[in-house]
Amino acid sequence: MDEQCHQSATPGILVARNPPPMHRPWRFARRTGDRAMTSVAVEGEALADLVLAIAQRRDQSAFVALFEHFAPRVKGFLMRQGAADTEAEDLVQDVMLTVWRKASQFDPAKAAVSTWIFTIARNRRIDVLRRERRPEPDADDPLLAGEPEPSAEAHLSGAQVQARMREAIATLPADQAQVVTLSFYEDMAHSEIAERLGIPLGTVKSRLRLAFRKVKAQVGDAFA
């Protein structure tokens, strides 16, 4: 990896928030220090409040604010994954409508708004573009019963977890960040990633494992 990528993983160096994705897609915004992290968490909690305002009051101005923040990101995400402009545009509208309709299913204790919207966009993309179903464990399945509910005070909000996770991702070594980026942005199978990077499949998998463990370690027991 080049010199700059190593620098971006060095504590104390700030890089631009949205680096040109075509050049170094594996570089992430770097925010250091508690203050910056807290501001990310605060922003995340403000977004969560918007979803709650929709759920509780069908608040249209909250929806407009949410749309302005997320619609261009959802569109950017879908286009990175290969959707054409028109497809992405239609899907964005579909995703944002789903956000409005399912607002009451959003749980700020469990996930950040960006995570929730990411899963909606992922599922709509699989449904509409790939014409497949996405099997997920059924929350009403008796097999899932008996899982202890985390106590509210012992746990961070989804937005706080997200802020920690963002920090963890920003400090990943470039080779690990790269496979994470390719997994999420490029809709590539691991074998395709291996081919693109010219490395063995086992290396792709071990980099993902290391990246994931690092992220888990920094988030601590927030999900426990």
Binding site: R73, F118, T119, G158, M165, R166, V180, F184
Partner: peptide
């Protein structure tokens, strides 16, 4: 947790 990584990735994408 992996979905939360996806959420971060969505926040970090260059918007269109």
């Amino acid at each position: 947790e992996a979905e939360a990584v996806g959420g971060v990735m969505m926040e970090e994408i260059a918007p269109v």
